[in-house]
């Protein structure tokens, strides 16, 4: 039951983009087409699942025993950056077709604050190993969901006749605001 609460909470109630404001850059940058946003969503899910596992082990088996929790930020960002590189190399060898699909999105993920944000949050929330990975995957799914919905909206917005000053980012932000309002309807679900 608790697992269920974590999953629903991370996907809908506390959606990573629309209520926690993590990963706004790819949300605004990559979400022009439904297809590319699906690719980005898949790549983020993949990296987040692995990074949460690694970060968890690092935090509780290296940093805490050594009493170096203050090094968290530096260690986490380096590990995530290295991990993304590694995933890219391994994927290229093992599954060229998956690499083809996720390829261009992988380097972008290092600067996606959602990955580091989730790593920091799962330590803050004191999740255990299974909860951490489940939380990371559900958060990533929430990210993918928001991205795909938003891409669908933006494909229509491109065609809409908007004033010059409103075109592009401003109208996207206002649309995201209305979408966030819709997602507020989920609050109280868990």
């Amino acid at each position: 039951m608790e697992m269920f609460a974590i999953i629903i909470g991370a996907i809908f109630v506390n959606n990573v983009v629309l209520s926690q404001f993590l990963g706004i850059c790819p949300f605004l940058g990559v979400s022009n087409k439904v297809e590319t946003s699906m690719g980005m969503g898949a790549a983020v899910t993949f990296v987040m699942a692995i990074s949460s596992l690694v970060v968890y082990l690092l935090q509780y088996y290296v940093l805490v025993p050594l009493g170096m929790e203050y090094m968290q930020t530096i260690v986490f960002i380096l590990v995530i950056a290295a991990l993304v590189q590694m995933v890219e190399i391994i994927l290229k060898k093992i599954s060229p077709s998956l690499y083809q699909a996720l390829g261009i999105f992988l380097p972008l993920i290092t600067t996606n604050c959602a990955v580091l944000g989730v790593a920091l949050l799962l330590v803050q929330k004191e999740f255990n190993l299974v909860e951490s990975v489940v939380y990371a995957i559900s958060t990533a799914l929430g990210f993918a969901l928001a991205l795909v919905i938003f891409a669908g909206l933006r494909e229509r917005l491109e065609l809409a006749d908007t004033p010059k000053a409103v075109k592009g980012v401003p109208i996207a932000l206002i649309t995201a605001g209305i979408l966030a309002m819709a997602f507020m309807g989920f609050s109280g679900l868990v």
């Binding site: 980012v169 932000l173 206002i174 507020m184």
Partner: peptide
């Protein structure tokens, strides 16, 4: 209260950006 919550952030930033573009143009 909506302006302090998440949707308000997006909407206020969107409108301020429009204003900024108008003024600088």
């Amino acid at each position: 209260l909506i302006f302090v919550l998440a949707p308000g952030a997006f909407i206020v930033l969107g409108y301020l950006m429009i204003l900024f573009r108008k003024l600088t143009a």
